[in-house]
């Protein structure tokens, strides 16, 4: 059984389809990059999965269980975490406190003690390399560090599936390399399945095992990165065709 299965997922805004009938099967511990030109519906698809922007039609099943109709926090507690391009962190809290919130509320069907949540937070901060900055106020961090805090908060909630939305935008080479390693380690060491929307193509080519290309809300290619990026439809979607001019 796939970890995640999307069937005929559509998301319309005022009658305009942003996602237009996407079918997708994600297997356990895959790293899948979701790419495509701006406005292709990639981020909207991620938000349809976790309920931030519920689908207009279609089915989203996590390990066979329907997620459509569930609130975002419930989807989170079922094991789907998300990290956004613009870091959504708790600015009045420290790094550790941010991660503790993930440890306290991220896991469904339990009410962990403060000590358990703190331990989960520290484990996540150790994993992401933030443990030495645990007591720093999040407001004082760089963009990359804030994204890492969000990543740690997601990990503290022990997710099965991690949705990453352009988390490498605006990073320098060192930060980019660190992010790639962190995502790879999350899959290799923690067994987390990853769906990752990204525009930074060298990162996609070095990390993703499978690439799905969206264009105008539809899947136009799905496969191994090198093969997919060489397809004529994909090149045309990114660069346009002579007829577009």
């Amino acid at each position: 059984m796939p970890v995640l299965e999307l069937t005929g997922v559509e998301k319309h805004f005022g009658g305009l389809p942003a996602v237009d009938g996407v079918d997708l099967r994600i297997e356990d511990e895959e790293i899948v990059a979701l790419v495509g030109p701006n406005g292709a519906g990639k981020s909207t698809l991620l938000k349809a999965i976790n309920g931030l922007q519920p689908p207009t039609r279609g089915s989203v099943r996590l390990a066979g269980v329907e997620l459509v109709g569930l609130k975002t926090h419930v989807v989170r507690q079922r094991g789907v975490a998300m990290v956004l391009q613009h870091p959504q962190v708790f600015e009045s809290m420290t790094v550790r406190e941010n991660a503790i919130v993930g440890g306290l509320f991220g896991v469904g069907g339990e009410r962990p003690s403060a000590a358990t949540a703190a331990q989960r937070a520290d484990d996540a901060l150790t994993f992401t390399g933030l443990i030495d900055r645990a007591e720093v106020d999040v407001g004082a961090l760089t963009l990359h560090e804030k994204r890492t805090v969000e990543f740690a908060r997601a990990l503290a909630g022990q997710p099965k599936l991690l949705l990453l939305d352009e988390v490498m935008a605006g990073l320098n080479d060192t930060e980019l390399a660190a992010s790639i390693e962190m995502i790879r380690a999350a899959r290799n060491e923690l067994g987390i399945t990853i769906i990752w929307v990204e525009h930074v193509m060298n990162a996609v080519m070095s990390l993703a095992e499978r690439v799905v290309v969206l264009h105008f809300g539809r899947t136009i290619a799905d496969g191994v990165p090198a093969d997919v990026m060489a397809e004529d439809d994909v090149i045309a979607a990114y660069l346009g065709t002579g007829g577009d001019r």
Partner: peptide, 19 residues
């Protein structure tokens, strides 16, 4: 904790699992 989280950032709170 839930109050602090949702007061700071409602979307972040939802993403962290806060009802």
């Amino acid at each position: 904790w839930a109050f602090r989280a949702l007061r700071d950032d409602e979307v972040a709170a939802k993403l962290a699992g806060v009802a």
